[in-house]
Design a protein around this nucleic acid. Structure first.
Length: 419
RNA sequence: GCCGGUGUGGCAGAGCGGUUAAUGCCUUCGCCUGCAAAGCGGAUGCGUGGGGGUUCGACUCCCUCCGCCGGCGCCA
């Protein structure tokens, strides 16, 4: 398989550190609110990547962190008048529920920041011992001057950067926090430097080091995490162990856009996953997401989703008779997936497979993509269809058409046979 | 300002240094149908942002300009 890595800005063959075993880390959510379709995109993509790799026989350890200690959580908990842990546990559960409704189930292990405090403190301590971090009265900071590879991932030269986070005690305004001293309520821990809480970036490296070691294969996340978050992770981990690169394949998903703008909490233009699921089912949402390449921006519109739903119906409508294996279609699907997870191309292959009646492939590939391409029938629906058929046979068209009208309005597809 | 990305038909969105530029939706005609829908068959849609360059040949590679989007130290 070939994957595009942000680190090299090129598509490279996937060569893993261990044969047949892949370590994949994806930045998880900060659990202070409901997740939206932009998040859904990223997690669907990595769900599909993992399922595809497993389908090819690889063992994938897919690790995802849950950021449950953070400014946003502290502030939201204060606003809502509840404790940080109650808020975090609630939205962690909501997140997992959303993931489940989207059919995202490839993650091997979810790791909370708050259950890895000893590992985090351990890393901070080691970074201080390595003399790449220093302690001030406000916290512990990473000294970016000590790290030669800085800026490698984002292409940003540090001399040209401007820091927005000001803290007079930092040696350099660009240095970032590893440990923040102070009392932050419930989520405050004792450390060798005093009571406080972790900085943002340190949880990921503490968690990934614990489960994967100092070096691993793939790190994924949204495009917006490249800088500074992923740069900081690299600085922390590589300074600690000297292994370079910490991660060879950095995969970043493009934004879901609304009227050309990034879908985000701050712009208020977001649709939560559960709201979207009120109108569109998970097959449609996944199909919609996979219809574009994961690195391209994707326009979210009602029209687009409606078209997607029709397209999916079309596949189901034509994939009825099993005509055996379509070797060419199967090859096209696999080739597309091998080529930097080109799901739009893979879905074009799915169209062919449906047209050519390779139902087995549709079932198998549908599991990789998490989409059911085959028509489902349920008992209640079959009964209704039977009643309509009988009415039509008796030429009771008025009643038959009324039933049809109502069924279509309810989003149920009906296919009549000639009388 | 700096860095990164992106610009393909009515819409969404792929690909490729060289036959008619995927696929789906949309539009339209026919078949089918009790009528529709679905399906099947056909048709149409001034389409590769502008300008240079490399090349026998560029949508594809290079340069440049323009537009749009994002990041710039706690956004997937």
């Amino acid at each position: 398989m070939e994957l595009y890595s942000t680190l090299s800005r090129t598509v490279e063959p996937l060569e893993t550190l261990h044969p047949d075993r892949i370590y994949l880390f994806v930045c998880g959510p900060t659990v202070y609110d409901y997740s939206h379709l932009g998040h859904a995109r990223t997690y669907v993509v990595f769900d599909v990547l993992t399922k595809y790799l497993r389908w090819t026989g690889k063992e994938v350890f897919y690790l995802q962190n849950i950021t449950d200690v953070d400014d946003k959580i502290i502030n939201r908990a204060k606003e809502d008048g509840i404790s940080q842990s109650v808020l975090a546990r609630k939205f962690e559960a909501e997140y997992l529920r959303d993931m489940k409704s989207l059919g995202i189930d490839a993650v091997s292990y979810y790791a909370r920041a708050t259950t890895h405090i000893p590992e985090i403190i351990g890393q901070v301590r080691r970074l201080i011992e390595k003399e790449v971090a220093y302690v001030t009265e406000s916290g512990v900071y990473f000294n970016l001057d000590t790290f030669g590879h800085n800026g490698e991932l984002s292409g940003q030269e540090r001399a040209k950067r401007v820091s927005r986070v000001s803290d007079a005690t930092k040696h350099n305004p660009l240095d970032f926090a590893l440990w923040k001293l102070g009392e932050y309520g419930e989520y405050t821990w004792d450390s060798p430097w005093g009571r406080g809480r972790p900085g943002w970036h340190i949880e990921d490296t503490a968690i990934s080091e614990k489960y994967f070691g100092q070096q691993y294969d793939i790190h994924g996340g949204g495009l917006d995490l490249i800088f500074p978050h992923h740069e900081a992770e690299i600085a922390q981990m590589e300074s600690l162990e000297g292994k370079h690169p910490m991660v060879r394949y950095w995969l970043h998903t493009g934004f879901l856009t609304v009227k050309g703008e990034k879908m985000s909490k701050s712009l208020g233009n977001f649709i939560t996953i559960r709201d979207a699921l009120k109108t569109w089912n998970r097959d449609v949402l996944r199909y919609f997401i996979l219809l574009s390449h994961y690195r391209s921006p994707l326009q979210a519109t009602d029209e687009g989703l409606a078209n997607t739903a029709k397209g999916l119906d079309h596949i189901r409508a034509i994939a009825t008779k099993d005509k055996g294996a379509d070797a060419e279609g199967r090859r096209a699907f696999v080739e597309a997936m091998e080529s930097d997870l080109n799901t739009p191309m893979a879905l074009a292959a799915i169209q062919r497979l449906a047209g050519n009646g390779d139902l087995e492939a549709l079932r198998e590939y549908g599991q990789i993509l998490g989409i059911n391409f085959l028509k489902e029938t349920s008992a209640p629906l079959s009964v209704l269809h039977e009643i309509r058929a009988e009415l039509r046979a008796q030429k009771q068209f008025a009643v038959a058409d009324l039933i049809r009208e109502r069924m279509v309005a309810a989003g149920i597809t009906i296919t009549d046979k000639p009388l």
